[in-house]
Design a binder for these strands. Sequence first.
DNA 1: GTATGTTTCAAACACTTGTTTGAATTTGCT
DNA 2: AGCAAATTCAAACAAGTGTTTGAAACATAC
Lengths: 230, 230
Amino acid sequence: MTSTKEKILNVAEELFADHGFSETSLRMITAKAEVNLASVNYHFGSKKTLIQAVFDRFMLRFTNDLSLEMDRLDEADSELQVIDVLSTLIKPITQLDNLRPDGAGVFMNLLGRAYAETQGHIRRFAMEHYASILKRFTQLLHTTSPNLQPTEMFWRLHFMLGSFIFTLAGHEALQEISESDFDQKVSIEEIIKRLVPFMSAAFSFDSNKPYGTTQASDDVGHKKLSAGEH
Amino acid sequence: MTSTKEKILNVAEELFADHGFSETSLRMITAKAEVNLASVNYHFGSKKTLIQAVFDRFMLRFTNDLSLEMDRLDEADSELQVIDVLSTLIKPITQLDNLRPDGAGVFMNLLGRAYAETQGHIRRFAMEHYASILKRFTQLLHTTSPNLQPTEMFWRLHFMLGSFIFTLAGHEALQEISESDFDQKVSIEEIIKRLVPFMSAAFSFDSNKPYGTTQASDDVGHKKLSAGEH
DNA sequence: GTATGTTTCAAACACTTGTTTGAATTTGCT
DNA sequence: AGCAAATTCAAACAAGTGTTTGAAACATAC
């Protein structure tokens, strides 16, 4: 038997992801969850803290899995490549689908919404609670590219974060376009597996060398293979 | 003398960028613009259409400049590199600062907000109105990497778009962190100029070749960690 | 000047929002 | 069982929302 508190959390995270925080009223939540309106304030205090509770629960599931993946990387004593570090993100994201249909999509939508709250409380909340795991990820990434300056590292990390959250938060629209334009249905997992090597290549870019030396483009007459091989 | 209509547009675009669409009330706008509340409905019809008007005006300034930049690229007959195409974005974005203080920041905030409106009317509006210039940009990019499959191209383009919008929409927060962590103040222009070569390197990545050949780091013989395999 | 069309204004409208209240009900415990 | 704490419930609250109204003010033309 799921408690009232859980029923609220489950419905809230879904509606928040679909419609946004301020576009989702407590009445929408309590109606769909089939609980009384006042129970939100009783169990969570306010809408603000409900949002944080939803966000925190989802985030914990993800960061726990991510920590495990990073543990595995720490144990392995072979030399780390960028792609190894970025690949730690794949499982924690895709495994969110086990919790609910399209769990990864819901999670990413929430993350995107939270990030859009530029001046809001969620941003502060996130920075305070998840700074440590972000730092660990950054340090791991640093070992793969020790000659990268900290500031350059910082920016590249956020460039990548942008790509991840933005792409996966808007995956529904992108999936639609992909299907209508290329007749190709793509899952979130496939998107990530395209994104990881793409970003790894970007991270491996050496800004000290003159641009062009890492180019793969023109005169190398190489044959096409299937683009999505894994 | 600025008309009532313009006063509303100017204030609205600022408040929308700062607080979001639904978090900005018409009363906030009309109060700051020092116009009557009813004038919004009189001049624009509804809040919905006001949002579209704000978005459209900002978008036109940008796309006009971008078109000019792409014209210049068409005229040049030297072989185009990825970075040449991506560099067309620099000027149109930074020039938005001429219109108002931190114009580029406001623009990017708006773009981010609009994108977050996953199921909203703005998304549809944008797709209908700006599909042509996006297509032109895509085609230009295609000439630099003719052996890239259309689907791969599509995804890379949106990966990049994510990085751009996400990073620049959140530039205020990132600038703060950068300043407190590295004592470095960075302008939007500097962010873009970091982002463009970073993304160019990613685009130049040849997914057909085994990963590692475009590496700037050490040797080729990298050992695969089975981090993300199912 | 008067007449005509455009724009502004204060006030009200109908509706939704998050939150609080105090009584009713259920639950846990001895 | 009976008592006490925890939970649920319907109702109301105060505040804010976008929009409409009809009169006032303004502008422009004849």
